[in-house]
Design a binder for these strands. Structure first.
Lengths: 209, 209
DNA sequence: TATAACTAACTTACCAGTCAGTTAGTTGTA
DNA sequence: TACAACTAACTGACTGGTAAGTTAGTTATA
């Protein structure tokens, strides 16, 4: 007697496959991921994947695309909403990022992009355009505003943003690259707070100004 | 009439293979690298590689091992030698790193490690132990010294070092990941200088202290 | 000529992508 | 309501290409 196979809603199939693929790509990278594994994770056969995606690369692009766009709008609205002093917003942004790093696969996605963008430039270009190209100007504007409002001393906003982001990049890579292979745990939120403190001190106008 | 093949000194063969492999791994990653390509680059047949290395992974490890150890002792002696104020040394260290990022494959190696350490934990662990495990304490000691000498305010040295390094990590990844796919050039040395300026301001003792 | 250095050609394993066939469920008709 | 005709969703088994690793034999030099 065969078990009755309950057919699931096919509308959810692409999403189920994307979820399974995200998990697998994060674990084993692009080349190391077998579509059979993705299929097993999603509770399907490999052939079924090809009903929803053209090929392995399309699936990969779908995974990246979705993971990126999911994380994006939140920051933008967050910044747009705030009107008070920039010095208050900066720590909040860093803490927000820390939360994303600790609680979502954002950092794993970034790692994946870093790892595979040489082989698949479209992936890297997409990330460059959609994440970096949108995020950096936003933060640069924020720094510039702080300078104009007299909260910060005169610094190069573009460079400053990179100093701001660098620490969080390091935190994200620490979590996804080194912790899984035995490195001691890094408290990302604590680091975000500490980094915010450093940055605010770094940007304080000169005492004699 | 065949051209006379002048046989080269076999003692140099492992190094030649390592060089060829480094170039190839940097270009195409671990999985994407064919030993036939490495062989052609080194002016040999694939089979000859197996006379000097056990397998592809050993070769990869050899490449990483060599590239890492080459870059390490310099920093250590540099720090050990210096006895003056830490505030002078900090910018020099960042500039040194910037030089390495711009002029050596160090950043590409780091990228490779990031990309492949999930699949080959030994690689990541080696890097963790030999580079991070030696570099971080060195820098932490430096910050701690600056605090003790009254040059810096009281901050957590471990966290501070991560803020210090983060920006250079970002710079290195920018160069190796995003510039090759069309991102605008980043002046790593200028960024090192700017970051040093920020960090020194961030560490300045409170005005009323 | 002995042997170290080397190679061409091969074997093996793997996996993306395909396809003929199956099963679960729906629709049309009486 | 019954059941035949149909379709969407899916699968197992296969193919073709690729590349790691091996081996039997060749070439250069002491």
């Amino acid at each position: 007697m065969k078990p009755v196979k309950q057919r699931r809603a096919p509308a959810e199939r692409p999403q189920e496959i994307l979820n399974a693929a995200l998990a697998q790509f994060v674990e084993t990278g692009f080349a190391g991921t077998r579509l059979d594994d993705v299929a097993r994770r999603a509770g399907l056969s490999k052939a079924a994947i090809y009903l929803y995606f053209d090929d392995k690369l399309s699936l990969f692009q779908g995974v990246i695309r979705q993971a990126i766009t999911a994380n994006l709008m939140t920051v933008e609205t967050m910044l747009a909403a705030h009107r008070g002093p920039v010095a208050e917003l900066l720590p909040r942004i860093l803490e927000f990022m820390a939360g994303r790093i600790e609680d979502t696969p954002m950092a794993s996605i970034a790692k994946l992009v870093i790892a595979e963008s040489r082989a698949f430039p479209e992936i890297g270009q997409f990330y460059l355009k959609e994440v970096i190209g949108r995020g950096l100007p936003l933060l640069e504007g924020l720094i510039a505003r702080g300078i104009k409002q007299g909260e910060f001393r005169k610094v190069d906003p573009a460079m400053t943003v990179r100093s701001l982001i660098g620490a969080m990049l390091l935190a994200g890579l620490w979590r996804t690259v080194f912790e899984p292979i035995g490195a001691e745990k890094l408290d990302v939120r604590a680091m975000a707070r500490h980094h915010a403190d450093l940055m605010l001190h770094a940007l304080r106008p000169a005492p004699g100004a």
